[in-house]
Amino acid sequence: MFDNLALSDNGFLFDTRTGSTYSLSSTGTLLLRSLIAGAAPDGLPAVLVDEFELDGRTAAQDVEQFLLRLRDLRLVASDTPPTEAV
C-alpha cells in the first residue's frame, strides 16, 4: 500500500501519486521506513524502544502522534487504527 512513497535515507519523501514532497526527521524516517517494509503500526513503539533509550510510554505516544500526522497528510489510509498509548 506504500508503493507510491519514495523515501530517501536523508528524510526526503516524494509521493508519486500526488507529487507532494515532505521532510522527515531521522526518527520519522525510521518509522515510515518500517511501515513501508510492512511493519504493523502496533509494532512501531517497539522499534523506537529497541533503537533508542526510550521508555515505552513516550514511544507509544510519539508513534501515535506521528501516525495521526501521516493520516492528516493522507499518507496512510484514514482507517488505519492508531496504536493505543500504554
Binding site: 536523508n10 516524494f14 514532497t21 521532510s23
Partner: peptide, 11 residues
C-alpha cells in the same frame, strides 16, 4: 532533476 530538488530541500 528530482535529486537536485531533494538535495536543496534536505541539505
Amino acid at each position: 532533476l528530482m535529486d537536485d530538488f531533494q538535495s536543496l530541500t534536505t541539505t
